[in-house]
Design a protein around this nucleic acid. Structure first.
Length: 579
RNA sequence: GCGCCAGUAGCUCAGAUGGAUAGAGCAACGGACUUCUAAUCCGUAGGCCGGGGGUUCGAGUCCCUCCUGGCGUGCCA
């Protein structure tokens, strides 16, 4: 164990071959501290014998506090019945000095121990990036786990609106993020093509057809009001002719439901495609009925004894699994509920072999979480196997004034319109720059107006600038240096070290974002990286007369480009070479 | 009534597992282009982290309570 560590350190310093420098350094420091602590107990400078299960090593927010810091002395002080700084001193005296690693170790504040690493320690990460390219930062902790991310899943009763766009961006980025963490990921869209909303769609089209044929009809408020219904009516009439309406309504409405539903769904698919979202599966709710899955779901719960009849309805005893109320699956009128579909659907998801199922829902459905978790538990699964990520509704504004978003009222702004006005990159970045579970004001006028000032361009611009530098270097006859041709001692600027440390953090950012299911952490990281790069760019020239310096800087800058492109690609945002 | 989410700079929001002097982007003000892209940079200013208690070496973060806002609380989807 100790031998491994020594060998590791030698390799670390000797070859500068660093692997995930931040995470690994933390482990190394933890081990050194553990050794120091043991030594303290041996020589009696500390007496409590307390050994924390895990020693905390962190990257301080303030660079003056070193590259890494530990609160170990603060934790021990109480058991030691001694002042934290005294404990820290004992630890520090016992700490073996690795001069190749540390430039300085100090006690600060209430008793933190701060570690300052040699620049050479850090620059090794550049080789890692150069070697792994887009693979740098990828994690392995998801390996062997099959995960499904289900998102958007809007009824095919009208076009997607801006709120769906947020769900689409979040779900898609989360799926990519999890893939980057090693998970085997599938994206799925659940088509709610059963139930009375679809009937309403068919009825709405029928009424518009009659209108088009000159009939005076009263168009009910609960029908879909949007202009697209008229378009569909027009379309079906020109295809089928007036004959269509001669048939009895019981035949016409289902036909129109299918007709409208499939057209609308095709439109949705096209919108999502242009938004950069591709699903592995489009899963039809109606197919659950057709294959008898709904009945199987109900039967399953009944056989397990988790269902009972009351008031002529069939209930799932979800309270047994933590829900605050039992839920109806089969209504007294003989019609199954939406919930029954969800039981069957989720049962089927797990039967398909997913270890983890993630549902992305609008936050207005948050009340459904306990009952769906109850279903998962009733299926004999760990409740944690279902994770629900909530996306708060988008508050759509137009010039500061609220714009209605109800599909039924027809007064909505479609995702298509927003994409055309704002651009998909800006739109996606905007959605992904905030925690999905916090409300979002999306002012169309502002989004358009700000487009030149949008953070997404700031990040993309950094990428484009690096491409430009590389073009310039190429023109000057400087090719991208190979690993061995780079002398890191040429990277003497504080900005260069700062940038390198930021790059070294990328794997941890990916891991943290993946574990928390929070892709928005990547935008925060990108912002920071771009900021540091732009500052560097404005102060120093990469391509200069000095070959050694130029070469080292090109190497660094190329790594920055790799990481920016990599992070943007996870978010589904393009990394342009020119702007 | 009960439940979930939120309340951080003028505005929009970041702040995982409790850490040191709470950050960024807009907006405001003053500066920097004969240079690899000024979609950039540098500087200034801006805060009882909704209020009040508590837990401890330490709280924006955890607990309690109150206030405010959004959502949910169907044999709707």
């Amino acid at each position: 164990m100790v031998l491994d560590l020594i060998l590791f350190r030698r390799r670390l310093v000797g070859t500068l071959w660093l692997w995930k420098v931040v995470a690994t350094m933390k482990d190394t420091l933890r081990q050194l501290l553990r050794e120091a602590l043991a030594r303290c107990y041996q020589n009696g400078s500390l007496v409590s014998g307390e050994v924390p299960a895990e020693i905390m090593v962190e990257v301080p927010a303030n660079p003056d506090h070193g590259d890494f810091a530990t609160n170990l002395a603060l934790i021990l002080a109480k058991k030691e019945k001694s002042a934290p700084r005294k404990v820290a001193e004992a630890l520090m005296r016992a700490l073996s000095r690795e001069e190749d690693i540390f430039t300085r170790v100090e006690i600060a504040g209430p008793g933190f121990i701060n570690f300052f690493l040699t620049p050479r320690c850090w620059y090794g990460v550049l080789d890692e990036i150069a070697e792994q390219g887009r693979g740098f930062g990828r994690q392995g902790f998801g390996a062997g786990t099959r995960v499904q991310v289900e998102f958007v899943s809007a009824n095919p009763t009208g076009p997607l609106h801006i709120g769906h766009g947020r769900g689409a961006a979040t779900g898609d980025a989360l799926a990519s993020l999890l893939a980057a963490c090693g998970y085997q990921v599938e994206r799925e869209y659940y088509i709610n093509d059963a139930g009375n909303q679809m009937q309403t769609l068919g009825r709405s089209i029928l009424l518009r057809c009659r209108e088009l044929l000159g009939e005076t009809v009263e168009f009910p408020g609960d029908c879909y009001q949007g202009e697209y219904i008229r378009d569909l009516a027009q379309e079906v009439l020109s295809e089928k002719g007036e004959q269509l309406l001669k048939a009895p309504e019981e035949e016409t409405v289902p036909f129109l439901t299918d007709f409208g539903g499939s057209r609308i769904l095709a439109g949705i698919a096209a919108d999502l495609e242009d938004f950069g979202v591709r699903f592995d599966n489009w899963y039809s709710e109606r197919s659950l009925y057709e294959r008898g899955e709904i009945q199987k779901g109900i039967d399953y719960l009944r056989e397990k004894g988790f269902a009972y009849e009351k008031d002529e309805a069939l209930w799932f005893e979800s309270t047994r699994f933590g829900d605050d109320k039992d839920r109806v699956m089969l209504r007294s009128n003989g019609v199954t509920t939406y919930f029954a579909s969800d039981v069957a659907y989720h049962k089927e998801k797990f039967e398909r072999g997913f270890d983890l199922v993630i549902d992305i829902w609008g936050a207005d459905h948050h009340g459904y979480i306990p009952r769906m978790k109850a279903v998962v538990a009733a299926l004999g699964r760990d409740k944690e196997a279902l994770q629900v990520v909530l996306v708060q509704l988008v508050n759509l504004l137009r010039g500061g004034a609220p714009a209605a978003m109800s599909t039924r009222s027809g007064e909505f702004v479609t995702l298509r319109e927003v994409m055309d006005e704002v651009g998909t990159d800006a739109c996606r970045y905007y959605f992904l720059s905030r925690h999905s579970d916090s409300k979002l004001d999306f002012d169309l006028e502002l989004a358009k107006e700000q487009s030149a000032n949008n953070p997404v361009y700031y990040v993309q611009y950094a990428h484009a600038r690096i491409c430009s530098i590389k073009r310039k270097a190429s023109e000057e006859g400087m090719e991208q240096p190979s690993r061995d041709a780079v002398d890191f001692s040429a990277l003497g600027l504080p900005e260069e070290l700062t940038l390198t440390k930021l790059l070294a953090q990328f794997p941890e950012v990916v891991a943290a974002a993946g574990r928390a299911f929070e892709p928005h952490r990547l935008t925060a990281y990108l912002q920071e990286l771009a900021t540091q790069f732009h500052a560097y760019y404005n102060r120093h020239r990469v391509v200069g007369e000095d070959v050694k310096t130029t070469s080292a800087r090109l190497y660094l800058v190329n790594c920055i480009q790799t990481v920016i492109a990599s992070a943007l690609s996870i978010l589904g945002i393009s990394a342009p070479e020119k702007m």
